[in-house]
Design a protein around this nucleic acid. Sequence first.
DNA 1: CAATCGCTTGGTAGCGCTGTCAATATCGGT
DNA 2: ACCGATATTGACAGCGCTACCAAGCGATTG
Lengths: 342, 342
Amino acid sequence: MARKRITPGKIRLAEVAKLAGVSPITASRFFRNPDALSTGKRARVESAAKELGYVPNLAARALASQRTEVIGVLIPSLTNNVFADVLRGIYDALDVSRYSIQLANTRYSILQEERLLRLFLAQKPAGLIITGINQTADSRRVMEAVDCPIVQIMEVGPSPIDMMIGFSHFDAAKAAIAHLLAQGYRRIGFLGARMDPRVQRRLDGYRAAMTEAALFDPQLIVTTAIPTSVTLGGTLFADLLAKAPDIDAVFCVNDDLALGALFECKRRHMAVPEQVAIVGFNDLEFMASSEPTLSSVRTNRYEMGRNAAMMVIETLEGRRPAKPVVDLGFSVMERQSSARRS
Amino acid sequence: MARKRITPGKIRLAEVAKLAGVSPITASRFFRNPDALSTGKRARVESAAKELGYVPNLAARALASQRTEVIGVLIPSLTNNVFADVLRGIYDALDVSRYSIQLANTRYSILQEERLLRLFLAQKPAGLIITGINQTADSRRVMEAVDCPIVQIMEVGPSPIDMMIGFSHFDAAKAAIAHLLAQGYRRIGFLGARMDPRVQRRLDGYRAAMTEAALFDPQLIVTTAIPTSVTLGGTLFADLLAKAPDIDAVFCVNDDLALGALFECKRRHMAVPEQVAIVGFNDLEFMASSEPTLSSVRTNRYEMGRNAAMMVIETLEGRRPAKPVVDLGFSVMERQSSARRS
DNA sequence: CAATCGCTTGGTAGCGCTGTCAATATCGGT
DNA sequence: ACCGATATTGACAGCGCTACCAAGCGATTG
């Protein structure tokens, strides 16, 4: 027959309970809901746990309680600075909580995302944070069926699965173009890389703004599916100049491209903004200290991550946020690179 | 008495075994070591699992087997691009394995690191990847006592806890200075931010190279505990110029500082490299496409993460790497910003 | 003073899986 | 055809914790 597998030295809840002179279940309660204990027992369990250096076995807890204290986070990229900021917000919010994070990288593929989602949900996470609003139909179905708080981040849109926090990429891009128009620029080019759904919506915003101003021209648009980089910014800018040598400004879907465009201008001895204005997107730290300083659209990435995590926690603790959809907005940072045309 | 808590619809291993016509333990073996089954049963269990959409319960597995398939990763920062690359390598290597990742952020504090380490180890991780070689004495003790593969990453040094992969920051910095000296520069400034142990060793390398060349001068060194940024690079460079207006080159401990220094030069209309040469560290992507292109010390961050994860996996699978300490080296990328003095 | 209420506490069994060893099937060699 | 060795398979109990219900207890109420 099977023999006992008792590990001798290990501190289990039973040991703590024994030392504290209470039943295991009471000790268990101490760790999950201390307020349910009388003051005396609470103190006894606390000191017993400390004395023995007790650490709960999460696997046993998860098995017995049929739930975990893990919040799943699905993001499309680990290298993109934008997500690093979001992640930092999430980690900061969850650091002081009982919850931990399970991170997965979808690599901008909604099929990969669906696979990871199923993997996550099978382990009964306490909550879920997922990027964007473009999930597969199956992914949506799975998420709607599951009973845990879910926050979609990075953008806002109609019909949230559960909760949502972000901003309108369409409006943000449109505002950036409006700024350029207001500064007197007319032939405004568009540089786009990767072309994921959010970048696509920035392109839509650009198109809307240009069309409204009766300045739209497809020749002004240069896009590629290649992942973004500073180098690529230079290449795309060169492509744009070849297609439309008469541009007086360029809107880049992110700051890396904008920086690349700036360097390309320097290489060609084109003055910024005198000959070409440049506006980026995201307002990464370096935009404010380049020469010239670069205009950009500031987005609240850290807050987005932080609030998303907090929304999950609040829901788990029964204090569901009043507003399930939060628009964090954006602001156009007007700097030297898009100074008024003289 | 307590009542049954059987969840009706749920697919457990027992269901799969029943459908396949084998015992639960055989089905269990299929998921852990398929080769141990006969061809027929293997196929039967496989199709049964597929038909039922069975997903193993990781908590039950962890509880029963007394171990997890989680590899803990401790890094000091989420925003630093350097760690993003390392992480990408780790995730890529582990994506195709059975192991998952538990990530924690030490925020450059070894006390925080020790706390997180205890938290991790209490959950019996399959392996551990930890940044650097400067752990607290208690952390070291705890790690030496535990029986799981541990890889220290980012640098190499004496007395590894278990395994190690990285490069010598001292040598790398020394090589960067040697390059500048060879190009004819003499008054080489040093810009350092954050000053974590690895940056400190880069400073040591700088000092050694300058001392050997009989060019060392403390006035050439500007450091701060403030976290790095492009803006800070500009500020520190300005400080350096105030202290030592006669510098002809500057070595920055990372590329953000180098970029900031470059912008500050442009603002001051100082020609790079004619008036000041600039060399950075890490060789981030943008260094090759700035104007002028910026010299840097290339480090193999992605490979570092990837190999670290692979070393853990190999050890877990009984194929312990032949070399427990791997020096990935570095290379000095010589670009326009440190062209030979004419 | 009995009935009722709310707060604490405990007993029991089970969460879903795997470690251990025994039992059985299979196979090559002589 | 027999033997021992090897490859497969199974039975059982238990991993450490918590859900569920019940019971104890003092306080409150009419």
